[in-house]
Design a protein around this nucleic acid. Structure first.
Length: 490
RNA sequence: GGUCCUGUGGCCGAGUGGCUAGGCUCAGCUCUGCAAAAGCUGCUACAGCGGUUCGAAUCCGCUCGGGACCUCCA
C-alpha cells in the first residue's frame, strides 16, 4: 500500500508518486504558528489538513518524524526589516514580558489543536531555542558568499543567488517579474537588492528580544528559523515540507534559497501547500478582520455564527473538502456537515448491533480498495467520505434487514470504519465517559423502561409528553423495533 | 501591471474525454400508535460563446465573473 501513494508537489505542479528519501521513513516539516495572538480558524485548517496527512502516512506504516515549529521571535511586522518584532510590540501593548505572550498563546494553540483532535508533532521546536543553529547557518551562508552584513544586519543576496539557482521556482516566477512587483529602494534602505531579505536583524535600543551574534546584538529573520530547524531535525534533504499557500511565494521561496546557498542541495523533495479558508468568498485573515476564533466557533459567540459548532463537526466539515481547494465557511454548510457527521457516527454504532448472517450481501474488498484509492490520490478525503457514506447506507440497510452481512463482513467493516474514521480522518465520538455521564446513562435507562410500560398500556399521551419534554432539554428519543434509544443533540 | 488558481444542480463539495461522486435541503412513498430515524424514488448540474473530437463539464481559444500571491498572515 505504501507504494501507491501519490501527492501533489508544488515544485513540479503535478501529482507525483511518493517515494521517501529513505524507504519506510518520512520527514515531515510544517510551518507552525507565530504565537503573538490567538490562532484563528485559517491556521487551524492548515494544521488539520496536515494532521490528516500525518495520520495517513502513519496508517500506511511509515515511521514519520513530524516537526512543526513555534515561531516565538524575529517575525517582523513589515517588509522593511526594521522596528520591533511582533512579540515585543504586543508585549508593550499588554505590558507583559515577550515570553509571557509566547507562553500564553502557545498554551492556547495547544488547547485548540487538542480540541480538533490533532496528533501532536514529534518535535515542536521554537525559534528562540535555536538561535545558535540559526547563527551558524547565517555564518555559513555568508562564507559561501550569498549574504552580506550592513550595520549589524545580514541580508541574503537574492540576485547573486539567482545567477546559480532558480530563485522563483516554487511559484514559477522569473526574477525580472518579481522585481517588477517590488517597490523601489528608498533612501532609508540599506540592503543592496530590492528582493534581498534579512537573515539577522541588528537590535535597536528599544528592541526587547535580542541575542548576541557575530554581527552584534540582534534577532533572527523570519525565514531562517525553519531552514535551521528543519535541517537540524530532518537533514539537509527531507521528504515533505508543508504550510499554507500564502507562505509559498515568500517564506518557502526564501527557505529554499537559504538551504541551497548553504548546502547546494534542494532541501525538500515534496512541497505541499494547503488552500485558504474563506468567509463569504473572501480569505479569512487576521488583518481582514473577518476571521473568528476557534472558541467563538465552538460557542457560537460571533455575529457571523447562528450557533455553536462542535470541534468534531468542524473537523468533519474541513475533511469534506480537499486540502488544495478553498473552503468557504457558512452556517448552512456547517450545519449540513454536522448532520452528515452525526449520520456517519450513528452508523458506526449501528454496526455494533447487527447480527451476522450466513451469507454476504456486500463487496467488502471493493469498498476497502475504494477507500485506499481515495486517500492514495493526494489525500482525497472528500472522496473517502463519499465512500464511507455508501457504506453507511449499506449498514443501515443491513440493520433494516434489507441486505445481510456475514460475520467476516461485520468484522471487516468494523475494522474499515475504525481505520478510516478514527485513525485517518481523526474523528472521534464526542461522548465522554465521566461518572456523571454514567449516571445519566442509568437514569435514561430507567426512564425508557417506565415509558415502555406506559406505552404497553397504550397511554400514548403520557409517553409522547415524556418524549416531548426530554426533547426540550435536547434529549431525543427514538422508538425502533428493538425498543427505544436516546441521544443528546448538540 | 506581473504570476497563478477558479466558476459544477436550492446550498456545500468531488471528479474522469464517453459509464450522470457524496453530504445537506425539498417532494412523494415504505415502515411506525404518532414522531423521529432508516430505506426507496424524484429534482440529471457543470458561467457564456466558439473550436478540436465519433463524443467534452472534463482539452484549446475568447468573453464575463470570483479569488490568491507579488507587503505581515496557515
Amino acid at each position: 500500500m505504501q507504494n501507491q501513494l501519490t501527492l501533489f508537489n508544488t515544485l513540479s505542479r503535478t501529482k507525483e508518486k511518493f517515494e521517501p528519501v529513505n524507504p519506510g521513513l518520512v520527514g515531515l516539516y510544517v510551518c507552525g504558528p507565530t504565537v503573538y495572538s490567538d490562532v484563528h480558524l485559517g491556521n487551524c485548517r492548515t494544521f488539520i489538513s496536515f494532521d490528516l496527512i500525518y495520520r495517513y502516512l502513519l496508517h500506511l506504516g511509515f515511521k514519520v518524524r513530524y516537526v512543526r515549529n513555534i515561531t516565538d521571535a524575529g517575525h517582523l511586522e513589515g517588509d522593511r526589516d526594521e522596528g520591533d518584532d511582533k512579540f515585543a510590540k504586543k508585549a508593550k501593548l499588554e505590558q507583559l514580558e515577550p515570553m509571557e505572550i509566547v507562553q500564553k498563546y502557545t498554551l492556547g494553540f495547544h488547547d485548540v489543536m487538542q480540541a480538533f483532535n490533532t496528533l501532536p508533532p514529534s518535535i515542536e521546536p521554537t525559534a528562540t531555542g535555536h538561535i545558535c543553529e540559526q547563527i551558524e547557518m547565517i555564518k555559513e551562508i555568508i562564507s559561501k558568499g550569498y549574504a552580506y552584513e550592513i550595520n549589524g544586519t545580514v541580508y541574503f543576496d537574492v540576485e547573486k543567488y539567482n545567477k546559480e539557482f532558480p530563485y522563483g521556482q516554487l511559484t514559477n516566477r522569473k526574477l525580472e517579474d518579481l522585481l517588477e512587483g517590488t517597490r523601489e529602494l528608498s533612501g532609508q534602505d540599506e540592503k543592496r537588492g530590492r528582493l534581498d531579505f534579512a537573515l539577522w536583524i541588528g537590535a535597536k535600543p528599544e528592541t526587547l528580544m535580542r541575542w548576541p551574534s557575530p554581527w552584534g546584538w540582534g534577532f533572527p529573520g523570519w525565514h531562517i528559523e525553519c531552514s535551521a530547524m528543519s535541517s537540524k531535525y530532518l537533514g539537509n534533504t527531507f521528504d515533505i515540507h508543508g504550510g499554507g499557500m500564502d507562505l509559498q511565494a515568500t517564506h518557502h521561496t526564501n527557505e529554499i534559497a537559504q538551504s541551497q546557498a548553504c548546502n547546494h542541495k534542494s532541501p525538500v523533495k515534496y512541497w505541499m501547500h494547503t488552500n485558504m479558508l474563506t468567509v463569504n468568498g473572501v480569505r479569512m485573515s487576521k488583518t481582514a478582520g473577518n476571521g473568528f476564533l476557534p472558541g467563538e466557533l465552538f460557542t457560537g459567540n460571533h455575529p457571523l455564527l447562528e450557533k455553536g459548532y462542535s470541534p468534531m463537526g468542524v473537523r468533519f466539515f474541513m475533511m469534506q473538502s480537499h486540502y488544495r481547494s478553498t473552503l468557504d465557511f457558512s452556517n448552512e454548510a456547517l450545519q449540513a456537515s454536522e448532520k452528515g457527521y452525526a449520520r456517519l457516527m450513528t452508523a458506526i454504532k449501528t454496526l455494533e448491533k447487527i447480527k451476522p448472517s450466513s451469507n454476504s450481501g456486500i463487496f467488502l474488498n471493493e469498498r476497502i480498495k475504494a477507500c485506499y484509492d481515495a486517500m492514495n490520490d493526494d489525500f482525497n478525503s472528500p472522496v473517502l467520505i463519499a465512500e464511507l457514506f455508501e457504506i453507511t447506507r449499506e449498514i443501515n440497510s443491513a440493520n433494516d434487514g434489507k441486505i445481510s452481512f456475514s460475520e467476516s463482513d461485520i468484522k471487516g467493516l468494523k475494522k474499515l470504519m475504525h481505520n478510516f474514521v478514527f485513525d485517518v480522518l481523526g474523528l472521534k465520538s464526542e461522548s465522554s465517559n465521566t461518572s456523571k455521564d454514567k449516571a445519566l446513562q442509568g437514569v435514561m435507562e430507567i426512564i425508557l423502561e417506565i415509558r415502555k410500560e406506559i406505552k404497553t398500556k397504550k397511554d400514548f399521551a403520557s409517553s409522547d409528553k415524556l418524549r416531548d419534554d426530554l426533547k426540550k432539554i435536547n434529549i431525543t428519543i427514538k422508538d425502533t423495533k428493538d425498543g427505544a434509544t436516546w441521544s443528546i443533540e448538540e
